[in-house]
Structure formats: C-alpha cells, structure tokens
C-alpha cells in the first residue's frame, strides 16, 4: 500500500485512537495512546491488508518534557512500512509489552528499560542487558542523568 492508502485504511479501522503526525517521510507516522498500543499492534500484525510481521526497531526517546517509545514495523509480504510512537510522562514511564506480538521486542524492550527506565508491563525478564552486570548508576540515556565517572565536555569548546 502507498502512504496515503495506509493512512486512510488505518484511520478508518482504528478511528479515534490514532493521531497522524505530518512528515515528509515515505512512511506514515502515528501517535497512539499508551493504553491502545497492544490493541493497535495486534491489529496491524493480524490484519490481512497490513500483515506487519516484522518489528524493525523499538526505541526509547527522552525529549526532556516526555518519554517516548517509537516502533518501526514493516511487512515483508506487502512491502510497506509504518512508524508509530507513544508518549509517556517522565515520572511514570510505563507501557504494555508487545513481546507477545513480536518476539523480537523482548530484547528491544530490555534495552529501552535499561537505558531509559521505561517500564514494560508484562515483560517477563526486564534485567541487565547491555551495561555491566554490576551497574548501579541508573538509566544513563535519560537527559537528567548524572554519572559518577563521566568527564563533562569542557565549556566553550
């Protein structure tokens, strides 16, 4: 499907809960409520006209105001792609896991949890993944994070 077809198809079948983010990319980009993430993922994965069987990437983002989780999915069979994201508050960054839909989300969610402190409810194994096993300094990719051994970039350079 082309970008326009994808947009109208998804807005028809999932009305009210999705919000289109205008962009210049060749793929549609949607903003979804945190509560609807699992339902939306299930829909695009199972729907016969979308068949998004492949989660290309799942990443956390810290925008200072909010935390975000961005999902990139594609369909090998129908050769189209779709991006969507959800916005979470800083203090309580929580969203349901999509591990049951795309198994690859397991590691991606562990990474987002470890580096950003985003909790994925229902994930069975949110444990240390990329950082050293004895790491005790929190979630380093958060904007407000201050590390113990970090050498700050010199002012004015």
């Amino acid at each position: 499907m082309t970008k326009e077809e994808l947009i109208s198809y998804i807005q028809e079948n999932f009305s009210g809960k999705v919000e289109l983010i205008e962009n210049d990319m060749p793929e549609p980009y949607f903003l979804i409520e945190p509560k609807a993430i699992v339902a939306f993922s299930r829909f695009i994965h199972d729907d016969n006209k979308l068949i998004m069987h492949f989660l290309m990437n799942l990443s956390g983002v810290d925008t200072k105001e909010n935390m975000e989780v961005v999902y990139n999915v594609c369909s090998y069979r129908l050769k189209h792609r779709l991006f969507f994201k959800t916005v979470l508050p800083h203090e309580k960054a929580e969203v349901d896991t999509v591990k049951e839909i795309w198994a690859v989300a397991d590691w991606h969610e562990r990474e987002a949890w470890e580096l950003f402190g985003i909790n994925f409810n229902g994930h069975p194994n949110l444990t240390r993944f990329l950082l050293p096993d004895d790491w005790d300094q929190g979630h380093p990719l958060r904007k407000d994070w201050v590390g113990r051994d970090v050498i700050p970039f010199p002012e004015g350079k």
Partner: peptide, 14 residues
Amino acid sequence: GGGPFHYDSYSVLQ
C-alpha cells in the same frame, strides 16, 4: 584514552 568517547561517556573505559 577513550578517543571520541572521552567526554560525556557512561560506558567507555578511558
């Protein structure tokens, strides 16, 4: 000495 990862790095040995 850490190279490009000398400053602002949480993961690289200096």
